[in-house]
């Protein structure tokens, strides 16, 4: 039994991945498969909604690091939104907000895609 899940939803040309539960070394492979599936289906405008994510460790952060280069090479991006402050703090600890778009809402993330704005 896993205390983590990923749900997919398409919104125009973007795909929204809604994370729920606890993302650690045990559950990170589930997020990895989810992002891999999107990439293999040619979906590269990805928005990760972390509103219901209750916990993240470096194994979870590592999934973003493992895929961001591939996804950006395919003219896509992974944008992260709606993180609870305690989860944002973990991303912030290692400087992720400098490299990844981390915004408050899905709408903001969609707007960034529409405007073609990439981080860095």
């Amino acid at each position: 039994m896993s205390n983590f899940s990923v749900a997919f939803r398409d919104s125009g040309s973007t795909t929204i991945l809604t994370l729920r539960g606890e993302l650690d070394a045990h559950t990170a492979p589930e997020l990895e498969s989810a992002i891999k599936k999107c990439r293999d289906e040619g979906k590269t405008q990805l928005i990760v909604n972390g509103h219901d994510l209750d916990y993240i460790s470096s194994a979870g952060l590592g999934v973003f690091m493992a895929f961001i280069e591939d996804i950006r090479t395919l003219d896509g991006d992974i944008k992260i939104c709606a993180l609870q402050p305690k989860i944002y703090d973990v991303f912030d600890l290692l400087g992720f907000p400098r490299i990844y778009h981390i915004v408050d809402t899905e709408e903001e993330a969609i707007t960034l895609f529409e405007q073609g704005i990439q981080p860095i």
């Binding site: 470096s58 194994a59 590592g62 690091m65 493992a66 280069e69 290692l94």
Partner: peptide
């Protein structure tokens, strides 16, 4: 000490744990 930009370029998923421990 890991560098998130460099690790991302190399598509590496690991190497952050010890840094997190030391920071916290």
């Amino acid at each position: 000490k890991p560098n998130v930009v460099e690790l991302s370029r190399k598509r590496r998923s690991g190497g952050l744990g010890v840094d997190i421990i030391r920071r916290l």
